[in-house]
Amino acid sequence: MSAPERIPPRSVTAADPATAARLLAHGELTVRGRIREASNAALFCTVALDGQEAGCVYKPVAGERPLWDFPDGTLAGREVAAYEVSEATGWGLVPPTVLRGGPYGEGMCQLWIETSADAGLLALVDGEEPEPGWRAIGLAEVGEDRTALLVHADDERLRRLAVLDAVINNADRKGGHLLPTADGRLYGIDHGVTFNVEDKLRTLLWGWAGEPLPGDAVDVLEGLRASLAGGGALAARLAPLITPAEIAATRARVEALLASGRHPEPGGEWPAIPWPPV
């Protein structure tokens, strides 16, 4: 009798977030290596369950460095909270992310995203004004006493991400945290420094600052306001992940965005652009 043929596992992608989240939460997690560029412990893993498999990033809470200005909760909890808010918008801007146990204790587990190299989301250009299809971020020193204009694409996906960042109060939206894919999707990652009760928005996506919010963003914000209210579905999902004060501050930011009807502008009391920007 011949040995039964081994059926290779089916790869799971972010295009099926419910299946991906189930796999991340319940699959067998195997560490494959360390992501050295990360400032906190971040491990590349595979996760497998019922003939399905995917790559993922596992960030154990035990490997987090304490932050004086984010004293409550964990980076892992805020990463998962950012995913929950993203899912509540319906925009799918954050890869499937769960909180689970692993080889080094509880941590954040997020689906690995294969990126496309030809996205054209950021650029350095000469001149003081961007070309059509681009939005100005600011001047950047490029060496030899020369400056160039840093710009980002005038892209609906980036604009939605700018709205999400305003809601979650993202203090670190760098260019390296933007993951475009070959199928035209865009994901944002690294949301450990979010949801602070104080205004800490730092981002490269200032190109729409002060402009009216598009209609779809207003509709999404209306839905978030209802879901963040006491007893709302999103408030319940966030409760184990961030503090009650942070949930209240998130709802207040949604209210402020709806009241102004505009993208936020830099406040001047906090550096508006993260360093390094990319």
Rank of each mutant, 00 (worst) to 15 (best):
W206N: 05
E53L: 15
W112I: 01
R237T: 14
A41W: 08
P212L: 04
R146N: 10
E5A: 15
A136K: 11
R225F: 01
L238K: 02
P277A: 14
V47Y: 07
A249N: 09
A233Y: 06
V125D: 07
A38E: 15
P212R: 03
E156M: 04
K200Y: 05
T203C: 09
A235Y: 01
L186M: 10
A148K: 14
I137M: 08
R225H: 14
G90R: 02
G101S: 08
G215H: 04
P103R: 06
L257F: 02
W270E: 11
V80W: 02
L158Q: 04
P276C: 11
D145V: 07
E84T: 08
S116L: 07
E265L: 09
N169M: 14
R10W: 07
P95V: 11
G73E: 11
V57Q: 03
P17S: 11
D16K: 08
F70A: 00
P244R: 15
P240G: 07
V142Y: 10
V197I: 15
A182N: 07
S86I: 02
P266G: 09
L67R: 15
I137Y: 03
R202V: 02
G175T: 04
P60M: 10
W206Q: 06
A259V: 00
A88L: 03
V47P: 05
G51V: 11
R159G: 07
R262D: 03
E222L: 06
E106A: 14
